[in-house]
């Protein structure tokens, strides 16, 4: 199935939960979904007989400019039907929260932990949400565009990057 067809199937099924379809400016056509609907949409994507998007290739957090909403991007692939879809969701940067899909796609477990580690996005329902690459006591979320590193970490000076 082509991406626009997948979009219309999703729209018919979920209505207002599906916000937008982005085709221009991206090489991977993207369906924008409300953050609380992510799990329901993903369940449908993975279980619907015509879609069967069984493989989550990639999950990435993204901060556009340090002011507007944070986003999470999911790249799906179907090993059965050989088609692709990208799902995107926006969440406010003050209290970023997205429903976790780690119990549905086990690979998302570590990806979501990384997004939490780097962007501070909270994944509701994640089995073990904690930092993965950085230390537990690291301050701040480094990949946010407005991130300013602390001056010291455990008594060690953090060098300023020009």
């Amino acid at each position: 199935m082509e991406a626009p067809d997948i979009f219309s199937v999703l729209q018919a099924k979920f209505g207002e939960q599906i916000v937008d379809f982005l085709e221009e400016g991206t090489l991977n056509p993207t369906v924008v979904v409300k953050p609380e609907a992510v799990l329901k949409v993903c369940e449908f994507l993975s279980q619907n007989e015509k879609l069967q998007l069984d493989s989550l290739m990639n999950l990435a957090g993204h901060d556009q400019d340090g002011e507007s909403d944070l986003s999470v991007i999911y790249h799906f692939y179907s090993t059965i039907h050989d088609h692709y879809i990208t799902v995107k969701t926006f969440t406010p940067r003050e209290e970023p929260s997205v429903v976790s899909i780690a119990n549905l796609y086990r690979t998302a477990d570590w990806h979501e932990r990384e997004a939490y580690d780097m962007y501070g996005i909270h994944f509701e329902g994640h089995p073990d949400l904690k930092r993965i690459l950085l230390e537990e006591d690291w301050e701040g979320y480094p990949l946010r565009k407005d991130y300013v590193p602390a001056e010291f970490y455990r008594g060690m000076r953090i060098e300023k990057v020009k």
């Binding site: 400016g25 991206t26 090489l27 991977n28 290739m57 990639n58 990435a60 991007i73 790249h75 990208t86």
Partner: peptide, 20 residues
């Protein structure tokens, strides 16, 4: 590159290497 995004994957010796 023009404004936009890409997810590109290739077969590395260890598996799917993707760049977003």
């Amino acid at each position: 590159p023009p404004k936009g995004e890409v997810y590109f994957r290739s077969e590395n010796p260890r598996g799917e290497l993707g760049y977003y």
